[in-house]
Every structure is written in structure tokens, then in C-alpha cells.
């Protein structure tokens, strides 16, 4: 277990090196000279050349990259091209906090509704409730955020006029409700389906019958024996769904006008603001890899039969 985690952690810097170098190189060789972006179209050429020299853009790319890396390791992502005089870290901190709150709200919704609903459906297998739940989840999983966002806006904001549609006011503001629900719907559907499927598999096991036979209360059986074993595939899915959440947050932030990281990233791509792009990619990759690692580390805790690192880790 220890060596497995160490091995996985050793991969992290390698992956980060590759990713950051690719983005760095794309930024240097792609269209849009960073200094011209900085100075605007009508800058004096001498000034441009002086700034290039000052900022070290004339050095070979590996030296530039090395310098950038050593700054990043010290937590300095440089200065934004577009928002002059503001450091990337300062910009990102604010935006990431917004996105993190929104994502957490969506994740909280999907877990707190999805798991009980899946359990509910599985324990009533074959009844009307079960079929209904499955049909709803199939729908919820397949309907893209592109549809739910405008429909929710149309119904709740324009027709009923009960919830605000635009902007951001923090975690305890009514403006978080609609985007969180829209982002949560696919998550709820996936988690419900998975919980139902894995619960059905667990319910048929001998140890559940044993647990019932030895007179444990139904509550204890369901909570400690069924749910805990049924959680393994669900937890795997949570790891994967992080990528999905990044995916939907781009759309939701646009529709609901939320000043989050998705909007900042798109804006930076259009304005070729590479310090921000690089920083977002490096931080995003780190979080993605660590989240997957955490998911892997949860398995042995949930199911002691699973030993990490024994097999080919995929």
C-alpha cells in the first residue's frame, strides 16, 4: 500500500512536467506574441524589444521554461498579461473559490440525493417505484446541461419568477440554487443508477443473509452491510465525475454568469493570457491526479479484500 501510493505520487511530478511543458511550448510557439499582447497593437518596436529582453523572452525556450518552473515551485505563477499589475495567484484564488463552492454544492446534491434514491429503488426492485426511478435517471443522465440550463431558467426565473438567474453571491445566497441544481442533475442520475446496480448485487450475497439471520436490525444491515459494500463502484465514479464536473462548469458558468474559473480560462485563451492558462492547467492537473489517488486509497478502507498494487493498476 505504502509503495503503491509512493509510486503513484512519483508519477505526479512527471505528468506535471509533461503537461506544463506542452502548454508552455504551445504558448511560446502559438500565435500571438506575449509582449505584443501585453503592449497592444500599436506599440513602439523599440519598447517591445526592450520588454522582450527584460522579461527574458529572447532566451532559449528551455531556459525560459526552467525559470518559469522554479518560480512556480515557489508559488509564483507570474503576472497576468491582460489584467496588468495583478498576479495570477491573486486572480486565481478568487475565481477558484467561487468554482469550488459551486462544484461542492453540485457534488453535495448528487451524493445526498443519489445514494438514498439508489438504495430506495434497489430495495423495491421490480415495483413501480423502481422502474420510475430508473426511467428518471436514464433521462437525467442523457439530457445535456445545454437543455436543462435554459429550461430551468425559462421556468423558474422567467415564468415563475421565484429565483434569481444571474450572478454570484457566495455559498449561502439564493443565486447558487439554480446553477447547482443544473450541475447536479447528471450527477444525481449517475449516482442513483450506480448505487441501485451495486446494491442489487450486494443484496444477493450470502453475508447479507447471514447478517439478517443473526438477528441484526434491518437498519444496521442496510447501513453497515449493504451500503458500505455497495459504495465501491460509486466512489470510483466520483473520481471520474470530477472531470465531468469541470466539463459542465464551463457551460453553467456561461449560462448563469458566474465569475468562476471556467469563464476566466476561456477569457484567457481568447486574450492569449498564457500565465493564467499555464497556471490553471498545472493546478487542474494536480487536483485531478490527487483526486484519482484519493479514490484509489479509499478502496481498501471500504473493502479490506482489495489490496492495492498487487495487480496491474489501471
Amino acid at each position: 500500500m505504502g509503495t503503491y501510493i509512493a509510486k503513484r505520487l512519483l508519477w505526479l511530478p512527471i505528468i506535471l512536467l509533461i503537461v506544463s511543458f506542452i502548454t508552455f511550448a504551445l504558448g511560446r510557439f502559438g500565435p500571438g506574441d506575449p509582449v505584443e499582447v501585453l503592449m497592444g497593437q500599436y506599440a513602439d518596436e523599440k519598447v517591445v524589444e526592450r520588454i522582450r529582453e527584460q522579461r527574458g523572452f529572447n532566451d532559449p525556450i528551455f531556459i525560459q521554461y526552467g525559470r518559469y518552473l522554479s518560480n512556480v515551485v515557489r508559488g509564483d505563477f507570474g503576472e497576468s498579461f491582460k489584467y496588468r499589475g495583478r498576479t495570477v495567484s491573486e486572480l486565481l484564488k478568487k475565481k477558484m473559490w467561487v468554482s469550488a463552492q459551486l462544484n461542492f454544492a453540485a457534488l453535495f446534491l448528487s451524493v445526498s440525493i443519489g445514494i438514498p434514491l439508489g438504495l430506495f429503488a434497489a430495495l423495491r426492485q421490480g415495483t413501480f417505484w423502481d422502474t420510475g426511478t430508473v426511467a428518471m435517471t436514464l433521462l437525467g443522465q442523457s439530457i445535456p446541461v445545454f437543455l436543462t440550463a435554459p429550461v430551468v431558467l425559462l421556468v423558474f426565473a422567467l415564468k415563475l419568477d421565484i429565483l434569481p438567474t444571474h450572478g454570484w453571491g457566495g455559498f449561502f445566497d439564493t443565486r447558487i440554487i439554480l446553477p447547482a441544481v443544473v450541475m447536479g442533475v447528471p450527477g444525481i442520475a449517475i449516482i442513483t443508477r450506480l448505487t441501485r446496480a451495486s446494491t442489487l448485487e450486494v443484496i444477493g450475497q450470502d453475508y447479507i443473509r447471514t447478517a439478517r439471520a443473526k438477528g441484526l436490525s434491518e437498519f444496521v444491515v442496510q447501513r453497515r452491510h449493504v451500503l458500505r459494500n455497495a459504495m465501491i463502484p460509486v466512489i470510483t465514479m466520483l473520481g471520474f465525475s470530477l472531470a465531468g464536473i469541470a466539463f459542465t462548469s464551463f457551460i453553467v458558468e456561461r449560462f448563469f454568469g458566474i465569475p468562476g474559473i471556467g469563464n476566466l480560462f476561456i477569457e484567457s485563451i481568447f486574450s492569449r493570457d498564457f500565465p493564467i492558462i499555464n497556471a490553471v492547467i498545472i493546478i487542474g492537473t494536480t487536483m485531478f491526479v490527487i483526486a484519482n489517488l484519493l479514490v484509489d486509497m479509499l478502496y481498501p478502507w471500504l473493502d479490506p479484500r482489495i489490496r492495492l498494487g498487487g495487480e496491474y493498476a489501471s
Binding site: W11, I15, V19, I22, T23, L26, G27, F29, G30, P31, A243, A246, F247, F250, F265, I266, I269, F270, I277, V280, I281, G284, T285, F288, V289, N292
Partner: peptide
Amino acid sequence: AFPEIFLVLIIISTVKAP
């Protein structure tokens, strides 16, 4: 291991012009 959507965005936006 990459968060692919970020990289796809950046690859497309830089590679398209050349």
C-alpha cells in the same frame, strides 16, 4: 491522467492558426 478538456481547448486554440 490529464484533465482533457483544458488541454483540448488550449491545443485547438494554438494549433489552429498555423
